[in-house]
Computed example of a mutant assay.
Amino acid sequence: MSLAESRPRPCGPGGPARGRPRSETVERAILEGVMKLLEEGVPLAELSIERIARTAGVGKATIYRRWSGKEELFCDVLRAAEPPDPVLPGTSVRDDLVVILDAMRERGLLNRSSMMMHNVYAQMKSSPKLWAAYEATVIAPRRQLGYDVLRRGLSRGELRDDLDIDLINDIVVGPMIVRAFMRPDAGLPEGLAEQIVDTVLDGLRPRAATA
């Protein structure tokens, strides 16, 4: 699996803005070195910074100038291996939610098609420290994106003003999470995001005033 050409935003709080100016070539070599080891079946627990440095052809200090440790590095590797986070059109709450859910659908398809990625996610969940880092720096910002879209929908009058945004965000993304990650037998066809969003929004829009 090839990594994205541009490195994702660092996982650590504020990013590792320390040391000498970064080289994109060096960073890409490190990310690809980790992915190479994962593709060879090396368990996450056995991926030491020393082994990663040896595979990437760099020194350990080069890695530590860019990442504070394995958790931060692994987050960036996984984000680089996944489809990039989408750019929202901003035209309506419906359009934005469709884009968010379709990105989840694409990640679900990747998880199904790549046994290596499937195994990596399973190993991450068995490592509380690593999963907490991924949850805080990758999943949480994606959830925040949904909150922001729904809040904009409220402010624009596209949604009822009596809604619990936290609950609604779960209701919107829940069906796609179930389909993409909890039911490997379920279909993930194109148009599924639109179907989910339109079904949910039908009950969330302001009610017409009655005479």
Rank of each mutant, 00 (worst) to 15 (best):
Ser2Arg: 15
Glu5His: 01
Ser6Tyr: 04
Pro10Phe: 11
Pro16Trp: 09
Arg18Tyr: 10
Gly19His: 09
Gly19Val: 02
Arg20Ile: 08
Arg22Glu: 12
Ser23Cys: 14
Glu24Lys: 12
Glu27Asn: 08
Glu27Met: 04
Glu27Trp: 08
Leu31Val: 09
Val34Cys: 09
Val34Arg: 08
Leu38Tyr: 04
Val42Ser: 01
Leu44Ser: 05
Glu46Tyr: 00
Leu47Val: 02
Leu47Tyr: 00
Leu47Trp: 04
Leu47Asp: 12
Glu50Met: 06
Ile52Asp: 05
Thr55Ser: 14
Thr55Ile: 02
Ala56Ile: 12
Gly57Tyr: 03
Val58Ile: 09
Val58Cys: 07
Gly59Ser: 13
Gly59Asp: 13
Ala61Tyr: 11
Ile63Leu: 11
Trp67Phe: 13
Lys70Gln: 13
Leu73Met: 06
Leu73Lys: 02
Leu73Val: 03
Cys75Thr: 13
Ala80Gly: 09
Ala81Gly: 06
Ala81Gln: 08
Glu82Gly: 05
Glu82His: 11
Pro83Val: 06
Asp85Gln: 08
Pro86Lys: 01
Val87Asn: 05
Asp95Thr: 10
Asp95Trp: 00
Asp96Pro: 12
Asp96Leu: 10
Val99Ala: 13
Ala103His: 15
Met104His: 07
Arg105Phe: 03
Arg107Trp: 06
Asn111Ser: 11
Ser113Cys: 01
Met115Phe: 05
Asn119Glu: 15
Gln123Lys: 04
Ser126Gly: 10
Lys129Pro: 00
Ala136Val: 11
Ala136Gln: 12
Arg142Ser: 11
Tyr147Phe: 14
Leu150Asn: 02
Leu159Asp: 10
Asp161Pro: 02
Asp161Ile: 03
Asp161Thr: 09
Asp164Val: 07
Ile165Val: 15
Asp166His: 01
Ile168Asp: 06
Ile168Thr: 09
Ile171Phe: 07
Gly174Pro: 13
Met176Cys: 05
Val178Tyr: 10
Met182Thr: 11
Pro184Trp: 09
Leu188Trp: 11
Leu188His: 15
Leu192Trp: 00
Ile196Trp: 00
Ile196Glu: 01
Val197Asp: 07
Leu201Cys: 05
Asp202Ala: 15
Asp202Cys: 06
Arg207Tyr: 07
Ala209Lys: 13
Ala211Lys: 11
Ala211His: 14
